[in-house]
Amino acid sequence: MEPAVSAGGWSSWPAPAKLNLFLRITGRRPDGYHLLQTVFQLLDWGDSLRLRVRGDGRIQRAGAEGYAVPEAEDLVVRAAKLLQKEANTPLGADIVVEKRIPLGGGFGGGSSDAATVLVALDQLWGTRLGEDRLAALGLALGADVPVFVRGRSAWAEGVGEVLTPLVLPLASYLLVDPGVSVPTAELFQAPGLTRDAPPATISDFVSGPLLGNVFEPVLRRRSEAVASALDALSRLGPAALTGTGGGCFARFGARAEAEAALARLPAGMRAWVADGVDVSPLHRALSAYRD
């Protein structure tokens, strides 16, 4: 997928969604951050960003009427300013985010948007910081940003930034958004949350069933909508929660199976099908742009 470049200087870049195929907490660092284990599955579906380089150094978000996040707090604006400062470039950018990924659902929308800004503007500005520096900048914005910067489905540890790329079995996923968003910090403080699970290994993940999401029982108790979504999905296939949002998914070996399951969901559920990918659409777009 090559980024489309219009006559007005705009280029379009993908910002894919992700799933956490499992998620557990194995302890805490001395600074209080929780130590995690998870597998990030990148998807072939997500948001799109349009970027246009400015020569006056200004960074502004355009076309954001009705967008829920104030511009000063938006990760895409913060990412662009962070890159601008790190690279000491006089260039700026106009940014348009075309949202498809639900906010707060655990599908990684904000983190992926920020990563796309870092990766694409590094190319468009000619700053060439390299993947390692961009991933470090991403980590300053959020724990999920580095996996999108690096652009590979991966086993993750630490706070989510210690990544081992994985080649995952081909799969299609039925995704459901119950419309529930709970602040991540609040979930991490939930009573009864298991914070000392024994560490798993990659072989545990490869050879065994889904290892589960530590936040699933918490969100089941807190939200009838999440519980209903998980119950509906579990009647169609192995169901799980993704990330720390209310988003849920079920895995299928073929897209036709996922599409058939979608048709069997109760009416009114916000749901769609996406395919898993090992290499991010963003990195495929970057390779095409460079060529």
Rank of each mutant, 00 (worst) to 15 (best):
M1S: 14
E2L: 14
V5G: 00
A7W: 11
S11W: 00
P16W: 05
L23W: 06
R24A: 14
R24Q: 15
T26N: 13
R29M: 03
P30G: 06
P30L: 02
P30W: 01
P30S: 06
Q37I: 03
Q41E: 04
Q41I: 03
D47Q: 12
L49W: 13
R52I: 08
R58A: 14
R58H: 08
A62Y: 07
E71I: 08
L75H: 00
K81A: 15
K85L: 15
T89M: 09
L91N: 10
A93D: 05
I95W: 00
I95D: 04
K99D: 07
K99L: 12
G106M: 01
G109N: 09
G110V: 08
G110P: 09
S111G: 11
V119H: 08
L124P: 04
L124R: 11
L129D: 07
L129M: 13
G130V: 03
A136F: 10
G138Y: 14
A140C: 00
D144E: 06
P146H: 05
V149L: 08
G151C: 08
A154Y: 10
G158T: 06
V159L: 12
E161R: 10
V162T: 13
L163I: 02
L166G: 00
V167M: 13
P169N: 01
A171T: 03
A171I: 04
S172Y: 11
Y173Q: 03
L174E: 01
L175E: 09
V176E: 02
D177M: 02
P178G: 03
E186K: 14
E186T: 13
L187G: 04
A190R: 09
A190D: 03
P191E: 06
P191N: 06
L193T: 07
P199S: 10
F205M: 11
V206T: 14
V206L: 15
G208Q: 05
V218F: 03
R220V: 15
R222L: 11
L230S: 01
L236N: 04
G237L: 00
P238W: 09
A239K: 06
T242H: 12
G243R: 06
G245S: 07
G246R: 04
G247F: 00
R251I: 02
R251N: 07
G253L: 10
G253N: 11
E257N: 10
A260R: 06
A260Q: 04
L262G: 06
R264M: 13
M269D: 02
D278E: 14
D278V: 12
R284A: 14
L286N: 04
S287F: 10
A288R: 15
D291R: 15
